[in-house]
Write a protein that binds this DNA or RNA. Structure first.
Lengths: 214, 214, 214, 214
DNA sequence: AATGAATGAGGGTTCATTCAT
DNA sequence: AATGAATGAACCCTCATTCAT
């Protein structure tokens, strides 16, 4: 019967709803990047071309939306890492491609979101995080094995530095660092090259250190 | 004698306004570091142990408070740069000392504040900014002249990277990057060393690029 | 049918926004009259039976609400003047009818609002003001031509005096002048009659003199 | 002994205090006229050249200060009425002089204060009110007896109208009616002349009607 | 399912009043 | 006695969230 009903009215509503959800997530991602982490839901709804209440049909509350945006970015970043690993001959070039690509993904704008203290997020992210870590470690392992990467750095170090160096300035500022981000990533990458030019203080960071429930 | 009494009993009931002002600025600085740039004035007042309206006796409004905190941090950072330049034999070591010291100053938490769109702030900060730039350039010039620093980086590049790499994660997160900041600064510093290991994309950043009125 | 049902049960749960808007304007008008121009929005919201934030859905801010209330009263006053001019045989009687009617419109309570320093208000009011002036001048011209009105007074004189004489006392006072307003208007009207019983000092007031942007 | 003490330190403090009180009242009167009924106590204190807390040494609270300002204005207005009655030959001219003088006293700005719902005020004002009424009635009686004043008006009518016609517009407006006040008072006075040109509606107003405790 | 409208809770700010010197 | 400083209560306004259509 439900099938009949669907046939009568077409599966349009379902498709529309699913499409709405995607549009909201995409709009939220863009809004976070452009307006900072404090964008209002009304602004996100406006960008998505839906009513504000529609957001609540798809997401329980604001942090749930943020969570989903984070997952979305994680997925894209995973794909980025995996394709960099698969495509590039030069392992260090794969690392550079990953870092530069992360800039385009605005991972710096959305990494903050990682820190939302939300246990459910940690749970959902666990798998994504692990997969991303595996991909990035793959890149780094290969580079290290090729003698291109200094051996005293771990995937967490790189992930954190990339995220921080690509973060936009807070507020609705007219100052943008966009022009310089690649420079600073490149300088950091140069510091990662073997042979190491100094002894690093502290212990290498792993993705585990980014979990907020310990 | 009163000093002795004060030492024994503590500064009794002095309730002087100038002390309150200092306490407010200090509380604001800490609050910005811990809770981000959006802390409420109530939270700041609570930390300072004063009523919220007391803040308005000392500062015209929220942005005026932010301005003063920024100036305070600028002053401390200037002193940091100047003493590093004066004290250290090795010019690159001076740079490292400056970078590490900036971590302690929480410059990453307060640099974001630079972006507050406030013309008066820019005006007041102009002199401080120039002085800080001079000091940092002094360090870098010496290091470059000693053949320790790659020649294709400018003071703005270093300032931005230090600020970004030392920023705390947003939100009231339980994740802190404190343990790793020195590592990542060190990696960046290694990337700064001569000889350059790559050609940098884009143009070198100057302090001028950090002004928000253009 | 629905109309019948509505008549029987009253407008059930219509909760339409346009009705809310009207209720807010009406509540604001009454509140201004009773409590003066400084009533809080909370009081207005309470009278309108809505939450305070609802006011902001309909009006950008406080002055926008004031603007709309003023326009509303202007419209009613224009209609008052035009119908007085059209209906009354005796031109001086038309003037009296206008003055007395203005009392009912509480124009004295709301004219003060005219002084809100708001450029947008002046702009929007310009047309209304001109139209009201035309109507009142029409009344006065006819009365003057009939030899009933002294020739040395202008429309601004009459408008100001009516507004002032019908103003309620400020504060939440228990003293009301309502009982006396018509008396004082009548005395003023008697002073307006031809022949003039004295030479008036100063220059005649026009509506132009009531604009706040010069 | 207290006399001795006073002699030792001089009666200066007493004189200063009394002088301060007068300065505060005068400053408050001016501030009310210039800035409206909502002037802050800080502004009044600034004008008086004293600290804000000093106001509280002389007046229990804001309404107590307002009360005293009202009494001050009442006193000046009484003197105005009594001297007009004593000096002028023509009884109607005395009325005109009183009305115009009231403009200079800014009675319109301070009459509002009459309406402060404060029982203590009514008590203190009772005598002043009575005395002012006697003086104004004296003027009006003489004018009526001379056949110059229409017989159907009472002192309250005149008092109210003068107060209303001389009130400044509220808010920090750039529109001032100062230029026109005398005109409108004159028109009202012309309406007061005998013979009456119309029958007045309602009952004549007495000062009793201005009391707020009934 | 989707949405425009409504709202309570909370933030920045002001000011009459009180406190401490 | 006089005052600079401190403050709670209240105002305007915003926004995440809920309601009614």
């Amino acid at each position: 019967m439900s099938t009949t009903a669907e046939r009568r009215h077409g599966p349009r509503l379902r498709a529309d709803a699913s499409r709405n959800r995607e549009r909201i997530v995409a709009a939220a991602r863009e809004a976070f990047v452009e307006h900072g982490a404090d964008v209002t839901l009304d602004e996100i709804a406006r960008r998505a071309g839906v009513g504000n209440a529609t957001i609540y049909r798809h997401f329980a509350d604001r942090s749930e939306l943020i969570r989903q945006v984070t997952l979305e970015v994680m997925n894209r970043t995973i794909e980025l890492a995996e394709s960099a690993l698969a495509d590039e001959e030069d392992a260090f070039e794969a690392l550079r491609r990953f870092a530069y690509g992360a800039t385009e993904e605005r991972i710096g704008a959305l990494c903050p979101i990682l820190s939302e203290d939300c246990e459910a997020l940690a749970a959902q992210l666990a798998e994504k995080r692990a997969r991303l870590e595996r991909a990035l470690q793959g890149i780094m392992d290969r580079a290290r094995d090729s003698g291109l990467l200094r051996p005293d750095v771990a995937s967490g170090d790189v992930m954190i530095a990339i995220a921080q160096l690509t973060r936009p300035l807070p507020g609705t500022t007219r100052v943008s660092l966009d022009r310089f981000v690649h420079r600073h990533l490149q300088l950091f990458l140069d510091g990662l090259r073997a042979p190491a030019r100094s002894a690093l203080p502290g212990a290498a960071a792993t993705f585990e250190d980014l979990r907020n429930d310990h």
